[in-house]
Design a binder for these strands. Structure first.
Length: 563
RNA sequence: GACUUGGUAGCUCAGCUGGUAGAGCAUAACACUUUUAAUGUUAGGGUCCUGGGUUCGAGCCCCAGCCAGGUCACCA
């Protein structure tokens, strides 16, 4: 391992601590009875507290020192005084352990007494401290001044995502996002559970990936010797449960799509899907706007949230615009009753990237996506999508070329998608067959025919409305983060290059021998290694090439030494 | 996938028409018992992402690659 100067120093401190009989990684529990936040909320002079956390800053002034301790709730100032910690003759606990052997980042426990300093800072006077974990790697520590301005922030996105643990330690605002994320999940659960909908779990490994148009990840089950797919959606399983007699089921579903990654797409992401029997999409719109208002308040304490330059108003109700009206509004073009060629001509004339393989539905979708979608900033329901684009949706009760579907647009992006669910098994079979035809033409995202799902529908699924919400995107809007990576603890990244030098078997064997002796005569090492001439030559060249060993020629002969 | 920006000390960043690699914080040493971006003095710390090329000489110029960010496309 290549250690930096600071890492070496910390390892030396670790050894010294052990010499002094201090276990840097003790096993025993530490009897914490307070947190920094609780102390601040209920501050009483002279109160005794036991807290634990990470040492985050130190200001040493001889035989006294101020420091900051950070726990899960925040930070508090702590005051180390030599005579307080070491009342007797032996001052080593302060002079050596605290001043010399502790580092920023170490996790310590503190028994202390609350007091207020001259300048009015709530502070814990340390009566005794215990090292709980020695930190061997320096934290990328930003400094914050009295006005809350941050200097030398840990901001490199690559390092922040790869080392989220460090990001969370030093960037409190990052933690805040994830606290909000969990608040949102909890709020949704509460909202659904209060209405007696039932949280369920359905398979992630699916023999047929259904419920959405997307490329799946494929894997293999050895015992069964069959391919399995990581789910791209859980829709068809939840509907099976409605067939089975549940009135309302929901699931927070980790979905997996083998597609591109960008600011708004991660290969695995979380959707929430809920299905409620005996409802339609009109009911679902009301339900959705109430849900989102509820969540916005739970997360931010307000029905408005800021995203970039815009204030999003989450207060229900939201406007409802049919797709036809939306297109009319932004292009002046009425798609009602238009033929495929008329739609194609219009799209072409408006410089929309279309091709002749596109059907009516796809053309309409392109026109909407290009000319309208981005204009819906405040939450708006877009309703009544073309049938061709929606193979799981019930035909519109008045317009047979449309479906009873809505998407909720916020800041020009879709965050929710809902239908009056198609429950006519014969219609569903025909829609699947149309998808299969698309697949035959080479559409690798067309849906598979799921015979078991059709069998379920044949038993009869009550009229049902379903809703899917992209949880990651929703939390992006509620926490003002334009990138999905900021709302996932561990966003997908390309594997890191291994920085450490990797040695092959022969090289490692020679290197181990070499380490015992530091420097050896070349021939002696060769004999010790027992390798053939050829292998020996290759291994030594490997070692010198990787700069872990070097060969030197002196008057006494050739010598090799570890670097 | 295309374009674009970046990769230099533990962290944040400088760097000259191409000539011995810099700062702040962090680290180490000394001083300092109510400070708070503590302070003062001193010191150490670098495969300048990788591999080629041009050159007497490359962190800098050229080519290829790797990783990341952004924009667009694809995708929802």
């Amino acid at each position: 391992m290549n250690l930096s100067e600071q890492e070496i120093v910390r390892r030396e401190k670790l050894a010294k601590l052990r010499e002094m009989g201090i276990d840097p990684y003790p096993a025993a529990l530490y009897p914490v009875n307070n947190t920094t936040a609780k102390i601040k909320a209920d501050f009483k002079e002279d109160k005794q507290v036991i807290i634990a956390g990470r040492l985050m800053s130190r200001r040493i002034q001889g035989s006294a020192s101020f420091a900051e301790l950070q726990d899960a709730d925040g930070r508090i100032q702590v005051y180390f005084n030599r005579d307080e910690i070491c009342p007797g003759e032996d001052k080593s606990h302060y002079n050596d352990v605290y001043k010399k052997l502790l580092d920023i980042g170490d996790i310590i426990g503190i028994e202390g007494t609350l007091f207020t300093t001259k300048v009015g800072e709530m502070t814990v006077m340390v009566n005794n401290f215990t090292l709980l974990t020695k930190s061997l790697k320096p934290l990328p520590l930003p400094k914050t001044d009295a006005d809350g301005n941050t200097y030398d922030g840990f901001v490199d996105p690559e390092m922040r995502y790869r080392q989220r643990y460090a990001d969370l330690v030093v960037n409190p605002q990052v933690k805040e996002v994830f606290v909000k994320r969990t608040k949102m999940f909890n709020a949704m659960r509460t909202f659904f559970n209060d209405r007696e909908y039932f949280e369920v779990e359905t398979p992630i490994l699916q023999p047929i990936p259904g419920g959405a148009a997307a490329k799946p990840f494929i894997t293999h089950h050895n015992s069964l010797d069959i391919p399995l797919y990581m789910r791209i959606a859980n829709e068809l399983y939840l509907k099976r449960l409605i067939v089975g007699g549940f009135d309302g089921v929901y699931e927070f579903s980790k979905n997996f799509r083998n597609e591109g990654m960008d600011r708004t797409h991660n290969p695995e992401f979380t959707a929430m899907e809920i299905y409620v029997a005996y409802k339609d999409y009109n009911w679902m719109m009301e339900f959705t706007e109430q849900l989102l208002e509820y969540c916005a308040v739970a997360v931010n304490g307000s029905t408005t949230s800021t995203f970039g330059d815009t204030q999003i108003q989450w207060k229900a109700p939201y406007p409802r615009v049919t797709m036809t009206d939306a297109i009319k509004q932004f292009t002046g073009f009425d798609i009602t009753g238009k033929s495929e060629s008329e739609l194609f001509a219009f799209a072409k004339a408006n410089h929309i990237d279309v091709n002749p393989t596109m059907g009516k539905g796809k053309l309409i979708d392109e026109i909407f996506g290009e000319k309208c979608e981005g204009n819906f900033i405040q939450p708006t329901f877009i309703t009544d999508y073309p049938k061709e684009m929606s193979p799981l949706t019930k035909e519109h009760r008045e317009h047979p070329e449309l479906t009873e579907r809505f998407e909720l647009m916020v800041c020009g992006k879709e965050i929710a998608n809902a239908y009056s669910e198609l429950n006519d098994p014969i219609d569903q079979r025909e829609r699947f067959e149309a998808q299969a035809a698309l697949a035959d033409r080479g559409d690798d995202e067309a849906m598979f025919i799921d015979q078991d799902f059709l069998r379920a529908l044949e038993y009869g699924m009550p009229p049902t409305s379903g809703l899917g919400i992209g949880m990651d995107r929703l939390i992006m809007f509620l926490t003002n983060n334009p990138s999905i990576q900021e709302v996932l603890f561990f966003p997908q990244m390309r594997p890191e290059k291994t920085v450490t030098v990797e040695l092959n078997e022969d090289e490692q064997a020679i290197y181990d021998l070499l380490l015992k002796q530091e420097t050896m005569e070349l021939d002696a090492l060769k004999d010790a290694s027992g390798l053939s001439n050829k292998k020996w030559d290759k291994a030594v060249k490997g070692l010198t090439g990787k700069k872990v060993a070097k060969v030197a020629k002196t008057d006494d002969g050739l010598f090799i030494s570890a670097v």
